[in-house]
């Protein structure tokens, strides 16, 4: 039996999604998310859908929820900047529990200025819309935060946002 600390963060995420019957994984590609994307694509438990844009992904997740299927929406912080209107007028207004799993760029060693400022919209937008948002920084917290956030979102019919910190994932490192 492996302890939580022996597992990769991405394995804990995948196991927690399964434990909560989250079967649809919609994503816009991101390098840090590779182990999650590869995981949901390889595992027949999941239906994996690559969306062209984040608000499109949000629409797919919202429709799936209304059809009785739980989903996870995986994106990068810059991609979050594409979805405030859809979050506000679809997920929040219609009380649809979409779970956003956001890989954090723009902090702790970011090398791309464009990523820095775009990443800073996540917390203020979530706060403005009353969407609970947590940064997951420690491996030991992954299961608890994700599991409880899914359960609360479903129970309260509200979206939730979880940011995967570089403290957890290692982030993306400038190669030069």
């Amino acid at each position: 039996m492996l302890s939580a600390s022996d597992k990769a963060w991405s394995d804990v995420v995948l196991e927690t999604l399964k434990a909560n019957d989250v079967r649809l994984a919609v994503y816009v590609p991101d390098k840090i998310l590779i182990p999650l994307i590869d995981g949901v694509v390889a595992d027949p438990f999941f239906k994996a859908v690559c969306a062209t844009r984040e608000e499109e992904a949000l629409g797919i997740c919202a429709g799936a929820w209304m059809g009785g299927m739980r989903s996870i929406l995986m994106m990068q912080t810059s991609g979050f900047g594409n979805i405030p209107n859809a979050l506000a007028s679809l997920a929040v207004a219609y009380q649809i529990p979409v779970i956003l799993l956001i890989s954090e760029r723009g902090a702790l060693g970011e090398f791309n200025a464009g990523q820095v400022w775009s990443s800073r919209v996540v917390a203020p937008v979530c706060t403005a819309l009353g969407i609970p948002h947590y940064a997951i920084e420690r491996l030991d917290d992954v299961e608890f935060i994700l599991d409880r956030s899914i359960k609360q979102a479903v129970a309260t019919q509200s979206p939730a946002a979880l940011v995967l910190s570089p403290l957890l994932t290692g982030g993306k490192v400038f190669a030069a």
Partner: peptide, 16 residues
């Protein structure tokens, strides 16, 4: 609201 999302929402229902 969420202009442009009728087809994605329909896709989600269709998958579910």
């Amino acid at each position: 609201g969420s202009m442009g999302l009728a087809f994605p929402i329909a896709l989600g229902v269709a998958l579910a």
